[in-house]
Each structure stands twice: as C-alpha cells, then as structure tokens.
Design a protein around this nucleic acid. Structure first.
Lengths: 222, 222
DNA sequence: AATTCATTAAAACGTTTGTTTAAATCATAC
DNA sequence: GTATGATTTAAACAAACGTTTTAATGAATT
C-alpha cells in the first residue's frame, strides 16, 4: 500500500489518461492512435488495453474522470443558490454563473489539466462519433435538466422553448470560446496572449446579454 | 461538349463531392474513408485520387465549392449596406445580419445541400486537423477582416479588442447552433422538429443581445 | 475504320490501425 | 526463499487505410 515516488501504484493509468486527454484535444479521437498515446505516456503499447479494455472505454474514462466532478460542482453551486433563496426566485444571472462560470473556472486551471480537458470537451460537443455523443448526453442529462428547471422557475413569464434555445446558444458560445481559440486567431492575429483569465468575465457578460435579449418575433417575423 | 443526361461530364466529381460532404459532416474527416465516399457516390475507389489527387485536396474542394460563394454573398451584402449608408454609420445589427444572417440563410437550404455544408463547417471550426484549420483561416481572412473593420467603424466608442471577442462569441453560438443540434437534443428531448426555419430569428436576437451587452469590468473585475 | 485521349475498372501496394498472445518481470504474502 | 497474482514487455495478428498501377472502356477526332 506504500506509495513509491516516481512510479506509484496506478501511475500507469494516470499517465495514460493524461497523455490521452492532451492528444485527443490536439488531434481528435480518430487522429490519435494507441501508439501515440502509449509513447507519449512512456508506457507499453499493450498497457491501454490491459488497463482500460478498448480505445472507446479509454475515451469514456478520460471524460468521466473530470466530468463527474464538474457536474457535481455545478449542482452544488445550484443548491447553494436554492438554499439562499429559500423558495424565493433566483436571479437568472446567478444560475448562469453556477453552470457556465463553474466550467470557466475549471478551464482557467491550466496546470491541473482542467484547461486541456475543457478544450477537449468543447470540441466534443460537435463530435461526429455517435458513441461519444451518446455517452456525453447520458453524463449530462441530470445536470442539464436541473439547471433548465431552475431557469424555468427564474423566468416564469418566458416560454420554456425559448429558454431551451438560449441555453443551447450559450452552450455554443462557451464551447467555442474555450475550444476554438485556434480557429480565428490565425485570421485575427492571435489574441489569446492573456487567455484564459480574461475570457470568463467577457463571456459571462455576453451570455447574459444574449439571455436577456428581446425575444424574436416582434418585427413581423414569427 | 454535349451534356448527356444521367451521366453528364463532371458528374462523377459532383457525386463524390456531395457524398464526401455528407459523410464528413456525419463522421468527420478521419472517420470517413475513401471507400465510404466512393461506395456512397457509386463510383470506383480510384475515382477520388484521379479527380482530386489526394484525400486532403478533396477536403479542400468540398469547402471551396461552397465557401467561396458564401463569403462572396457576405461581402456583397456588406457593400450594399456601405453604399446605402453613403459614409454615414451603419447599424451594427445590419452588419451582424450581413455576416451571420447570410450563413443562416444558406443553412436553411436543406435540399440544395447548404444545410449539410453549414453543419460540416460549424464542426470544422473546432477541427483538430492542422491542415484544415490553416485552409479555413486563409479562406476566411479577407471576409472576417472586412466585417471587423465595419464593426469597428459602427462602434467607434467600443474598444476594438472587445468587439473582436464578441465576434468570436457570436461565431461560436452560430456554429454550435447549426452543427451541434444532435448534442443536446438527446438531453432535452429533441427540439429540432421545426428546424432550421425557426433558428435564424432566434439566433439573431440572441447574437444582438450579446453584442449589445454591457462590457465586463464594472463590478470591480478588470 | 483507325486513332487518340479522358475516364473507369479491378487488383494490388506498403502502412498503419486496434487488439491479442505468450513470455518476462515485479512486488507481496506465505 | 518460494509461490502467487498483478503488471509489463516484445512480438504478432488480421483488418482497414490511402494510394498506385495496369488494363479496359468510352466517346470524339482524323
């Protein structure tokens, strides 16, 4: 049971997960081979299959490792808000912060790997791979449901379908802001020199502006 | 030079491009094999290499075929606005519509393939593949530069860096809204039954709300 | 009718893929 | 110290990959 420095028990597992996380983020799932992962992790090729079974199960574990904590933190933040409100209505901005702000704070953790993971997660929302989509949906189901319900209560005068759309839009803006920093920086001449510390307040303000925007369908469109 | 119905000259090229477009959208670039493309297109395996050279050049052609028109339309819409204004300032909402509205109108064209392409394009913004990112950046450079300049002129009192960020956020919200409809629909119980006709006005209203949101940094943060 | 050039067809190329096998090595318990 | 179970290692597997090659087919020109 003694932890040996340099090569502790379970060290191989962690090394694989860390290497896979970074490589999946950089090259995608199909673009990352088992050999890339194991050589980056400094372990034998067969180690992935030994510890995780298959590549798909490794992908699943890469997500579960962090996603469980993320959504637990989100729900904990929401519960704090609900307790504080004590039955009264909660400001939508607080709810948005509990969901998106929590993710942004994780994305700000560069050293611990949270930044890498959030970039990977952002890309995965639009991942073609059916298996990954299915897994993500299940992992998110409860958390999203709870937050949507909270928003419905906080905005009782707004059609629920509209809230759903706006939640969708906010997810997109955040995912892309975290994951797609490479995309436009070539066009615009790199502007992430101060990333990601300045991202959070800017994005939050944008999201709340979008959430509060007048509903479509006033100018004749419907 | 006579066009023969049923199997016209260049028909093979188009069949390949159409099949590749759909398959890339569904399975990604690495997840789509040459054999998947050629069998879906009903042509011989060697046809892709004969007509396009390599898989990478095929990918490039899939994008160029539609992207050139899209950005041409965007720039044309912007020029109309600038001519109408005749030197006076242009409303930011008009500029946003010229850029994002044009894309959304293309995405609404389901039969002509514009919908498929825009979903592919949205996914590609966060594409890990270095080669694809580089190509997209070059293809977008001029158009983005022109629109950013227009927004700078329309909002002279706003720090240009802030405008750049918000443009970035808007790109994310749109890309995700078009490309990622599968992602959350599993969670939320599918809501694209009326897609994509209702998407455009809702998204435009959200984007404008975000663009007009008060800048971050009031509450002590900077 | 013969020739020419573009296109299509079938088969094979060498690599790389994820996974498995079987032997070697390790730490721990008896 | 010997046995045991977990882990690591090296080697090999069939399958799938993008691409190339060589021959057959097509239509238009001379």
């Amino acid at each position: 049971m003694t932890e040996i420095p340099g090569k502790a028990a379970g060290d191989t597992r962690s090394r694989i997960l860390d290497a896979a996380e970074r490589l999946f983020m950089e090259h995608g799932f199909d673009g990352t081979s088992m050999r890339m992962i194991t050589s980056q992790a400094g372990v034998n090729l067969a180690a992935v299959n030994y510890h995780f079974g298959t590549k798909e199960l490794l992908i699943q574990e890469v997500f579960r490792r962090r996603l469980t904590d993320l959504n637990r933190s989100r729900l904990a933040a929401l519960e704090v808000l609900e307790l504080e409100a004590a039955g009264a209505s909660i400001k939508p901005s607080r709810i948005v912060d509990a969901f998106f702000g929590t993710a942004l704070r994780m994305a700000a953790d560069v050293e611990g790997g949270g930044h890498t993971f959030m970039r990977l997660l952002g890309r995965t929302y639009t991942e073609p791979n059916e298996f990954v989509r299915q897994f993500l949906a299940e992992e998110y189901a409860e958390c999203v449901e709870r937050f949507l319900a909270a928003l419905y209560r906080a905005l009782p005068e707004v059609d629920r379908k509209e809230i759903l759309w706006r939640f969708h839009f906010m997810m997109g803006a955040m995912s892309y802001a975290i994951a797609g920093t490479d995309a436009l920086q070539l066009v615009t001449g790199k502007f992430d020199d101060e990333n990601p510390s300045q991202l959070a307040p800017r994005l939050m303000s944008f999201l709340l502006g979008g959430l509060r925007a007048p509903l479509a369908g006033f100018g004749g469109l419907k």
